[in-house]
Nucleic acid binder design. Structure first.
Lengths: 346, 346
DNA sequence: GTGAAAGCGCTAACAG
DNA sequence: CTGTTAGCGCTTTCAC
């Protein structure tokens, strides 16, 4: 592979000049530039990125920490991140932690601030301590989907109003006349989906129902988790006419459970999810859900991160007097498909 | 971030010595090593990967070119690749081409041989010419899932016997008494799924049936594609008792189409796919399919690629006299779930 | 066993 | 406008 030096020789100029025409900085004479460009084309020169990274003290690479690809939402999000990064001339390193903080830390130790200039974190189950350390080492960190805009994590983040998502879901069910609604929460109690459930409870209460009294079950954030939870819920409370679920995957599982119990969706039971993953469109019937601005969140996260990378003078966290920066996406919005309908009275 | 030099100062040795203890080469006195190790721990030193890459002339990074994350198989495969790479101390850069050769070429131009020492290609819809160029530039290329072991592509690859997969699928249906079987091929005619369909046809003929005469339709490799194809097929040929599909996604779509036509799977219609993606397990009923050794393919691909990276003296393609290296995975195997059953006579 | 020195390919002042 | 001069942080002969 030809080096910048060889290009310079070939064009009869010095490396500095070649570098200048490459990065369109430092003015270069039109005729010289022409010669250099020709040499570049002729030799098929391509800049050696690690060398550039070393000289610039900055690598063209961002790391995305995720906990699992099993959840189909992550690839969708990763794709959006990759797109946004590409437009900014950055490359994406995928760091799969398998939900293991150890693995996450190992990744951070190895590449944060060296191979990758910044770190995007998507539910990777990392120690916040490790993330703080990473920041201190000079590699900005951005949390990609913080669920509670009003309760910032002390780390730069992109926040999505998931409480509202839960509220919208509940309101939709209520507007269809449902009063006996079961809730399936795809996390531990007070876990990551707490805000979503809070929104649900709020909406129920606003409608004069005791949301907290509505039957709720906490389950793994998977199809199977939703399946088992829905089965249990429906057996214990045969009078339920709708199921609120904090994520699409368990919602899909809930629909299967309903089918297995001989219930027809939406005639006998309405099911609603949150997120609007690809699969929600493909199920039969289509899953009604509250869509979350995934692409926007990815773009904001990339933007925020690169901003922090480029302006380390504000501290790696973009702290204003108020602490780390928080970007809020546009609001989630209801997407009505076939899995919800008017409440029946069975 | 502390540099190796600072560590050396701190330990009262020279950079060379620190480097030696770091890479466990060139023997170092036990006592000196101890001092260096302490200095490293104390300063929290971590090697600067780009600098190392520059000095070594080799980056710790591999690129995976994929065409889309929409197909759920790709994330599964990417995950397996990431795991394999991590074990080898390499990092994974995801290059999404969106099926666009231009984007693919741009990626290759930028990182092949600079940021990434080698390239894994997974159905990225790239020009073979571009891949050859990449090889010539010194960055080995490995095709991750070549479908025809007997018909090597002239590029190093991991091959999976997809013809056999098609054959196994057909044999399974035949063994259940199906004789009128429709085929849905998830690619263009003579396209990427040709080998799978060939296997199907072969098995049919071996059973004394004219496989080529079995109704076949070519469709996009998606749920919707399979849905539409199955619907058309079943309407045109109401006597079909089974559907062979060259991929799981269209198979899942086919099951939906059957349901919408009032057919019960597997009582009225059997459906079989190929690959065994995660979703195949989660559908109702579970999808019978021919599982392909995804993880093994990923591991072999990584192994082969790194071998080529480390031994460029054989040419970047590992050419023996017979051309580029071909690794064949273990055989696909049938996974029976609920979507297939004894042929009915409707 | 350890140190000195050169250099990987590129950028970034600063001179001229 | 272009050339000169230092590095960036690390590896790697090759002496000592």
């Amino acid at each position: 592979m030809p080096t910048l030096n060889e290009v310079a020789l070939h064009a009869g100029v010095t490396p500095a000049t070649v570098s200048n025409v490459l990065r369109k900085k430092g003015r270069v004479g039109a005729e010289t530039r022409q010669r250099v460009l020709e040499a570049i084309a002729q030799l098929g020169y391509r800049p050696h990125l690690p060398a550039r990274a070393l000289a610039e003290g900055r690598a063209p690479t961002i790391a995305l920490m995720v906990s699992s690809i099993a959840n189909p939402f992550y690839p969708e999000f990763a794709l959006a991140v990759e797109n946004a990064l590409r437009r900014k001339g950055q490359f994406l390193i995928i760091c799969n932690t398998d939900g293991d903080p150890q693995t996450g830390r190992a990744y951070l130790d190895q590449i944060a601030g060296t191979l990758s200039e910044g770190v995007l974190v998507m539910n990777a189950n990392l120690d916040f301590e490790d993330l703080r350390t990473t920041e201190l080492r000079g590699a900005p960190v951005v949390l990609c989907m913080w669920e509670r805009p009003l309760d910032p994590p002390g780390l730069p983040c992109v926040a999505v109003d998931f409480r509202l998502a839960g509220e919208l879901a509940a309101q939709h069910l209520l507007s269809q006349g449902h009063r006996r609604i079961g809730a399936i929460v795809g996390s531990k109690v007070y876990g990551i989906h707490a805000a979503r459930y809070d929104g649900f409870v709020d909406a129920m209460q606003a409608a004069g129902l005791d949301g907290a009294a509505a039957p709720v079950v906490y389950a793994p954030d998977t199809t199977q988790g939703g399946y088992a939870a829905a089965r249990d819920l429906l057996k214990a409370h045969p009078d339920l006419t709708a199921l609120f679920t904090t994520n699409d995957l368990p919602a899909l599982g809930a629909m299967q459970a309903a089918a297995d119990l001989g219930l027809e969706v939406p005639r006998d039971l309405s099911v609603i999810g949150i997120t609007d993953i690809q699969l929600a469109r493909e199920s039969r019937p289509g899953l009604t859900t509250v869509a979350v601005p995934t692409v926007e969140a990815a773009e904001l996260a990339v933007e925020l991160l690169l901003e922090l990378v480029e302006a380390p003078e504000n501290g790696a966290r973009g702290d204003g007097p108020g602490g780390a920066r928080v970007c809020v996406t546009s609001k989630p919005r209801l997407v009505v498909r076939g899995s919800t309908g008017e409440a029946s009275t069975r």
